[in-house]
Amino acid sequence: MPSGFPLPRARNAARSRRKLEQMTTHDLPAALAEIVDDFQALTEADRLQLLLEFSRELPELPDRLKDHPELLEQVVECQSPLFLTIETEQNDAVRLYFKAPPEAPTTRGFAGVLHEGLDGLSAAEILAVPDDMPELLGLTRAITPLRMRGMTAMLGRIKRKVAATSRPAS
């Protein structure tokens, strides 16, 4: 076993393994499908490592949101405090912002996956993501179903917020 955790180890392993195998296709936006394929190419232990890498790569909040915590809402279904908000740009791209403490790496990892997979997509693309997408990561056994629900709740919250902003109540 190598000591320490070189940052992109799991991601690199997934990429090199996937070159050898046929790509799986998913009814998912391209970036998210890529992430799902990465997770699925790995062993369970390496999937956890990859989730840890995502937790480290979750972008910091921009200063204008850092100073205004009231603009974010908490996803109470997560084990640990997670706050998120969305913004829609003029070209209809939806931007996602997350805040989760460093002592909640699993929650940060889930947020990191959703950020990399969904940030910048259109409302319609985000709303088309299946609610059970987190199941595709193959983490349920390693992380337990209880913990996976936090991610499902996070995706649900994003979709509800996107739906609320893109389709004004009639």
């Binding site: 955790f5 956890l48 490592q49 989730l51 840890l52 937790s55 084990q79 640990s80 460093p102 002592e103 909640a104 790496p105 699993t106 929650t107 990892g109 390693a142 992380i143 337990t144 913990r147």
Partner: peptide, 9 residues
């Protein structure tokens, strides 16, 4: 821990 990845951090 509660968080399955916390030890690794």
């Amino acid at each position: 821990d509660e968080d399955v990845l916390l030890y690794e951090t």
